[in-house]
């Protein structure tokens, strides 16, 4: 954990459960998790970078072990609120030339942040990005989902409401001094407050971040998975076309989370990209 110099810094660190690992004096590599999970989803990828990079991880507010009380429906009603948090973390830790690895919806959060403070970031690594999940009949954009699909997701989240609320209960009542804490925390992975999950789903899956692509001047690596329900091939190509300084790498990994299912391939793709563009 970080020792924060000021109270404001420690508030940000606590709010987003900022943690650090790796080589303290290495270049900064920051990881932003996607919808449905928390920073633990990077666990299998980190060993490939820990020797050379200073690794900074955090949970979006509402996810993982972030400060749920900081969840403000107004602020987090758009992705801008999350981008603001990300920039605040960079500011309080005074991070420079950040290599930002961002998954899923966080790829768009990363781009919003990079447009706001272009000098803060050296490179962006966008894992399975999508600027808009729903199709847009008006201009023929294919995001992969209809609005009814997203309503279905919200219904699905509602179905899981009771299960998730049950899963949260032992954590809320747990005694931090109890020896079973480690086990408790491990099983807390991807736990989420059901109401927040629902709101975040709305914000994530009904947002349209396409305009931000054209504004971003940062160098970006796009990691495109095979057979990804959430970010199909057309979407990756769209992102590549609209991000001026982007490189697209096709991964063999299937699904939406290559850093979980194929951490070795994912890490190699990132390292190759970084090596090729020192």
């Amino acid at each position: 954990m970080v020792t924060a110099a000021t109270e404001a810094a420690s508030l940000v660190v606590r709010r987003n459960n900022v943690t650090e690992a790796g080589r303290a004096d290495g270049p900064v590599m920051m990881f932003a998790h996607g919808y449905g999970c928390d920073q633990d989803m990077w666990r299998r990828l980190l060993p490939y970078f820990a020797d050379d990079y200073r690794l900074v991880l955090f949970d979006h507010v509402g996810a993982g072990r972030s400060d749920v009380d900081a969840y403000d429906r107004g602020k987090y009603g758009t992705l801008d609120g999350y981008a603001e948090d990300l920039l605040e973390i960079c500011a309080v830790l005074d991070l420079k030339d950040v290599i930002l690895v961002a998954h899923s919806v966080s790829a768009m959060i990363a781009l919003i942040a990079a447009v706001r403070e272009p000098d803060r970031f050296a490179r962006l690594v966008l894992v399975a990005p999508s600027p808009r999940y729903t199709n847009d009949a008006a201009d023929g954009y294919v995001g992969g989902f209809s609005e009814e699909d997203i309503e279905g997701l919200l219904a699905s989240l509602d179905s899981n409401y009771v299960a998730w609320a049950e899963a949260l209960a032992p954590m809320a009542m747990g005694n931090p001094d109890a020896p079973e804490l480690a086990e408790e925390l491990r099983s807390s992975f991807c736990r989420t407050n059901p109401s927040i999950a629902r709101h975040f789903a709305r914000v994530t899956f009904l947002s349209d971040s396409r305009p931000v692509l054209d504004k971003a001047g940062c160098e970006c690596l796009i990691l495109q998975c095979s057979d990804d329900l959430l970010a199909p091939q057309e979407v990756g190509d769209y992102v590549h076309r609209h991000l001026e300084q982007s490189t697209l790498v096709q991964l063999q990994a299937t699904g939406h989370c290559p850093h979980v299912s194929a951490p070795g391939d994912t890490a190699r793709a990132i390292l190759n990209y970084l090596d090729s563009r020192p």
Binding site: Y35, R44, A155, C190, D228, L230, C257
Partner: peptide, 20 residues
């Protein structure tokens, strides 16, 4: 599964199985 459950399964369950 219906699409909503597929999204949930892809974003929540598969990574959780992989990590946890």
């Amino acid at each position: 599964m219906p699409v909503g459950d597929q999204i949930l399964y892809s974003t929540h369950c598969i990574p959780q199985l992989g990590i946890n």
